[in-house]
Design a protein around this nucleic acid. Sequence first.
DNA 1: TCTGGGGTCCTAGGACCC
DNA 2: TCTGGGGTCCTAGGACCC
Length: 419
Amino acid sequence: MSGSHFALVDCNNFYASCEQVFRPDLRGRPVVVLSNNDGCVVARSPEAKALGIGLGDPYFKIRYAFEGSEGIAFSSNYTLYGDMSRRVMDTLRTFTDEIEVYSIDEAFVGLRDPQPNLLSCARALRSTVKQWTGLTVSVGIGGTKTLAKVANRLAKRGTGVCNLIGHEDMQGVLSEVAVEDVWGIGPRYGRMLASYGITNALQLSEADDQWVRRRMTVVGLRTVLELRGIPCSGLNETQQPKKAIVRSRQFGRDVVDLEEILEPLASYVAAAARVLRKQGSVAGAMRVSIATSRFNEYTYANSIFRTLPWSTAHTGELIDWACQCMRQIYRPNFVYRRCGVMLTALTPADMQQTSLLNQEHYDGKKRALMEAIDGVTVQWGERALHWAREGLGQGWRMRQGRRSPRYTTRWDEVPVIAL
DNA sequence: TCTGGGGTCCTAGGACCC
DNA sequence: TCTGGGGTCCTAGGACCC
């Protein structure tokens, strides 16, 4: 533990800001980014927040008023956001190796600097990221990750940087933080705590350990200890391989027929299998799910878990098994809106157990084929090559009518400056 | 017409084994 | 007529995160 100084670096309004970096004309205007299928608002510029647009608002409900206020909405452009995220993280890595990328738009950074330098270090991070990527970050520093999160909230409200290390009035600071704004306290715990009169972070930090343990498990207890300044979690510097890989999406339109549902399913399996191979794993089990819209009159949802005959990362095998699962849970006469697949029981591909009885497994030949396919995909894009089961028409694909260009990753979509 | 997607961790309870 | 105790594995469900 490096002196227990944690900085949380968090991009402000990340998705909306990514759009504005490449569209200077939109700076200062209300901008929102929508979820898949252009369903809900998932990111807002400050101007959009000022209009009262809420996170998660269904777009069709606010569209009229929003566009009437000169607002502009974008479909999610994850290719762009992912690349911008990589640029931010690469910038942070020029300052330190002690970095845990926590999500697409935030990272914990370990700071070794002596205390008087912490704020100037935070300002340097902030201005460099701004200069190199065009994005604004807030930096909060604390003795634990939970306190760094608190500091980051304060930073966002103030000058963009905040240091709580050695703060002379921590009690005052914590008493100003609503309990449900504490990292790890969601709506359920927030309500439960409120019913016991605990409404701010200071009160939570003073709660009885045993009581917290009983009501909120060890996870809640760790949060309380971290509020008191006792670190319970360090930086996860090495990226752990994922334990599950999920692909599940709403269709762009209603789907009724089994054969038609197998197309998106195959496509999600193929996408999940790419991620699986990228982290060098094979899957030993899968769960396949299907559901109608929650808003339908007649709803049906089901899922099935299956241990696979052998562990594999072969897309074709995974698709076959997933389709078998789907045939078991599909019921006719429902109008479906989503299906999904989860790959689990993941193990490293080079540590496979070969069964004596079952000669077949993910062998060199299959691996070579998958490597070749992945190579083509990297070079020519994910749609260059696909399994027949994924279908050709793909009318179920999600709607993305408002997607911005992939400015940073496609030669044919780089911004052009007119002379 | 239109309501997101991908993860983690913990606990309880059942099945099964010795 | 009687019905232990401990360990492990699996699953479902609940909570949280962004």
